[in-house]
Design a protein around this nucleic acid. Structure first.
Length: 275
DNA sequence: CCTGAAACCTGTCTGC
DNA sequence: TGCAGACAGGTTTCAG
């Protein structure tokens, strides 16, 4: 499901409410429950219990697609992967759902519940988050990511641009939807080699990525299928899952190819293959 | 260093 | 109706 805008939407809801949920800031952890053992990546269940009990939620942050729940002494990290979602339930209205995998129960009875149909999502508790987050590349909104910096990074690699943008160690936060949408907005073919992009193209790409993500965040993410609800960015797609439909810019029929094992949508006219 | 395939999983949709 | 196959917002690991 979730790429940067969906994760950002969830993080904001955990900080200050939204999506029909309650904020979790300043609540005290009482206990944890693991309903699918693989969901807890580390430490062990016993160790987790000992470590987090009594700790207070100090902040909720995002890095790439990771949700960071900052406690007094340590961090809970959550990655939603393909089908994960988080909800906060009050003590009264607390109906368990199919696919609930992990529960953080607070002293006041409120629960943070991790639901994940496909079981790919993971939760970590660690004192040193960099151990897990350190491999991530720069965040798209990081001011240190300038057009010249992106250009030189693109030059240093020789990969299909679509695959490179999906590589979280290169840039942290883009997934399949926002990559396709950003490349269309920038007018760049998904199979162009990264080191073939010109300086102006790198500048356009950076702007397109930021504009696309910002629009996604403003619309609370994209709701597709049964997995994620609440956003409406799906109504603004230009190419994603629009195979056979006309490009909103030029009317050419949108094509679908496979790039880096992922379904990839583009306009052959707005995004020519030739340099 | 790069690509492609497979693995981890379940749910939904399409076509026969 | 039933069933097989394709496909899905992600990441890691391994072979070539």
């Amino acid at each position: 499901m979730p790429e940067l805008p969906e994760v950002e939407t969830i993080v904001r809801a955990l900080r200050s409410g939204g999506r029909g949920g309650l904020p979790i800031l300043n609540r005290t952890v009482e206990s944890t429950e693991v309903l699918w053992s693989k969901t807890l990546a580390s430490p062990t269940l016993d160790e987790l219990h000992i470590q987090v009990r009594g700790q207070i939620v100090k902040d909720v942050l995002r890095r790439g697609k990771y949700i960071i729940i900052q406690l007094d002494r340590g961090y809970l990290l959550i990655h939603l992967r393909m089908s994960g979602d988080l909800r906060v339930t009050s003590a009264i209205k607390d109906t368990p759902l199919p696919h609930d995998r992990f529960v953080l129960r607070f002293a006041d009875g409120i629960r943070l519940i991790f639901n994940d149909a496909r079981k790919f999502g993971r939760v970590w508790f660690t004192r040193d988050p960099e151990q897990i987050l350190g491999k991530l590349g720069v965040d798209p909104f990081d001011p240190s990511l300038t057009a010249p910096f992106l250009f030189s990074n693109l030059q240093s690699k020789k990969k299909h641009i679509k695959s490179l943008l999906l590589d979280q160690s290169f840039l942290a936060g883009l997934g399949n939807i926002y990559t396709d949408e950003s490349l269309h907005r920038a007018g760049i073919h998904p199979l162009r080699l990264s080191n073939s992009l010109t300086k102006p193209e790198a500048g356009r790409l950076l702007q397109a990525i930021r504009d696309t993500l910002e629009e996604g965040i403003n619309r609370n993410g994209a709701s597709i299928d049964w997995v994620y609800r609440g956003g409406d960015f799906q109504n603004c797609f230009r190419v994603y899952q629009l195979t056979g439909k006309p490009c909103p810019v030029c009317g050419t029929i949108i094509e679908r190819i496979i790039a880096g094992q992922r379904g990839t949508h583009f306009c052959p006219r707005c995004q020519p293959k030739g340099v």
